[in-house]
Amino acid sequence: MGVRPGRGDGGSRGAPGIPRRGREEGRELVRAAEALYLHGPAYQDLDEGAKHAFVNGGFFVYMVTPRSELVSIWQITPDPYLHD
């Protein structure tokens, strides 16, 4: 598993309300999944489904798919009460 930047990782279409710390939390999630699912393609149990991770500035919805060695971040939601 690795980090592949997408639209939400500093690109022009990213979520400006989520601070850099939120992106680091996403990278930490990938590192944790790598440690938890060492033999990803051989994983036999069911996927755990979508989860939420709350960070300063908002939250994101993600899913770990061990057999595909994939961490998908589906949605990034900035905190509507924070001002830049």
Rank of each mutant, 00 (worst) to 15 (best):
R21N: 11
K51R: 11
R13Y: 10
E28I: 15
E48K: 10
G2S: 09
R31V: 15
T65K: 01
R13I: 04
R31T: 15
L70C: 09
R4A: 00
H39I: 06
L38I: 02
G14I: 01
V61E: 07
Y62T: 03
V64F: 01
G14M: 03
Y43W: 10
E69C: 14
G6A: 10
L82E: 03
S12N: 07
G11H: 09
E28K: 15
A42M: 12
G40N: 02
I76L: 09
P41R: 08
V55P: 02
R23T: 13
Q44C: 11
Y43M: 09
L46G: 02
H39D: 13
H83E: 11
Y62W: 06
G40W: 05
P16A: 07
P78V: 12
P80K: 00
V64W: 00
H52F: 14
Y81S: 05
H83C: 07
G2P: 05
G8R: 02
R7W: 03
R67W: 12
S72H: 00
V71M: 02
P78H: 06
H39Y: 14
D47P: 07
S72L: 09
A32L: 10
V30Q: 01
L46V: 06
E28H: 14
G11I: 05
D84K: 05
T65S: 11
P16G: 06
P78K: 08
Q44R: 15
L70Y: 01
Y62K: 02
R31N: 08
Y37D: 07
M1H: 01
R20I: 15
M63C: 14
R7I: 03
H39S: 11
R20A: 15
A32V: 12
D9L: 04
R23H: 13
Y62E: 03
V30L: 04
A33H: 01
H39E: 11
S72C: 13
V71N: 01
G58M: 06
A50P: 06
R27S: 12
P41A: 03
V3R: 06
H52N: 08
F54L: 03
S72Y: 00
D79I: 11
F59G: 06
E48F: 01
Y43S: 05
V71L: 07
W74G: 15
R7S: 14
R27A: 14
L46R: 05
E69V: 13
M1V: 07
G57C: 08
G26T: 06
R23M: 14
L46I: 08
V3I: 04
M1W: 02
W74S: 15
G57I: 04
Y37H: 06
E28L: 14
E69I: 12
F60M: 07
R31D: 09
E48M: 01
R4I: 00
H83L: 08
E69N: 07
